[in-house]
Design a protein around this nucleic acid. Sequence first.
DNA 1: ACCTCGATATATCGGATCGATACATCGCAC
DNA 2: GTGCGATGTATCGATCCGATATATCGAGGT
Lengths: 221, 221
Amino acid sequence: MLELAILGLLKEQELHGYELKKRLGDTLGPFSGASFGSLYPALRRLEAAGAVIAVDVDHATASDARTSAGRPIPMTGSLGGELAAFRARRRATAPHGGRKRKVYRITGDGERLFDELLAAESQSNDDDRTFQLKLAFARHLPSEARLGLLERRRAHLVERLARTRASVATTKDRLDTYMRSLVEHSRDVTEHDISWLDRLIEAEKASARSGPDALTTKESL
Amino acid sequence: MLELAILGLLKEQELHGYELKKRLGDTLGPFSGASFGSLYPALRRLEAAGAVIAVDVDHATASDARTSAGRPIPMTGSLGGELAAFRARRRATAPHGGRKRKVYRITGDGERLFDELLAAESQSNDDDRTFQLKLAFARHLPSEARLGLLERRRAHLVERLARTRASVATTKDRLDTYMRSLVEHSRDVTEHDISWLDRLIEAEKASARSGPDALTTKESL
DNA sequence: ACCTCGATATATCGGATCGATACATCGCAC
DNA sequence: GTGCGATGTATCGATCCGATATATCGAGGT
């Protein structure tokens, strides 16, 4: 679900494609692969669905293009502030490398779509990626939905562990060293994941008891 | 690289599509996703490339269909032995549910293609899956190639870890609880992976010193 | 005797994603 | 000044997935 990742980023700040790609690789780390070949089609889909609106920004107007949230549209890879001042002196309308950009802003429908995608119980097979992505945006979920997400994930991992153990029990001695090491390592990782989830679940329950939203700091960035 | 997984399984025993799918889900566990929508096209590609040959097997001849290796073609999901005897009593030519099967056998070209795919340095982004798959078939690699595979993987993870740490250092306090927990857990898992690889690398070097192929038990199953 | 259900088995379709590539435009170094 | 690298948008072909269609058989209920 690339749409979810895109909407989640646009929720905080409107961005153009190239910068969006950068953040999908950095902020969302390896939780969400992305490439231009999937990003631009996804943006077109979202635009067609009315979830985002695209605005062309050329160099002349780029300098004072500001989002509805009053946040300047970042120029990728660029100049965190001090350097920007220098740039501004050099050329009044601080343009930048590259051609004209297309800035995407999330709409009301987009916000609703985001909530829907985030709350969906996907049960699909690429669940690893999907879970991590949803957890990354868990602050936008109500507490009981967060708990449900964590517990569904836990159940999924427990079931995976059971299947792995069953498979190991029947074919153990037929496996060569590498297969065995792989399976055992995979089992360890899954167990580690489960105990991590247990910690998250307990923390979530604790925060639900003592005042809602105590965990979600920097709620609106 | 579904082809690699398919060829690796067919290398040990000729199989039909349904059983192949089962094994891609069981034996290769979560190391190699697979679905009919990708499996059958992949088999067609391999057949077109001359890497495998397909033989139709109907119910009349199914009972004594045996591979060139003298191994019976398994009937999926079925009767691990005791039950098979009962079935055999009930109906002489132990046919089975389902329609006629198409059994695939690897060719010489297929073996060469397998070696090629296994030795390829993919550097691609879905490297997690690819590495695990290659390690699962590492017994088919010469020792130095195995070592190369492990060390390339280690370097990849070390680099990922560095990027994660850098990202955390710059954006740490801007992350909410869930993002932070996710990133930290991801970091822990990567570190765990690296130390696991270190153990594998050391074992590999040790086995290279004291007699080649000392590690690969059950070489030919 | 019939008949539905589930397992076995092959196959295709549409959609999502990827890697590679093409293209444009600017800043900067030489 | 000119060529290189970063910025930026876009598309192509291939692959993979989930859902679905089709077919055949055994098991079990009624």
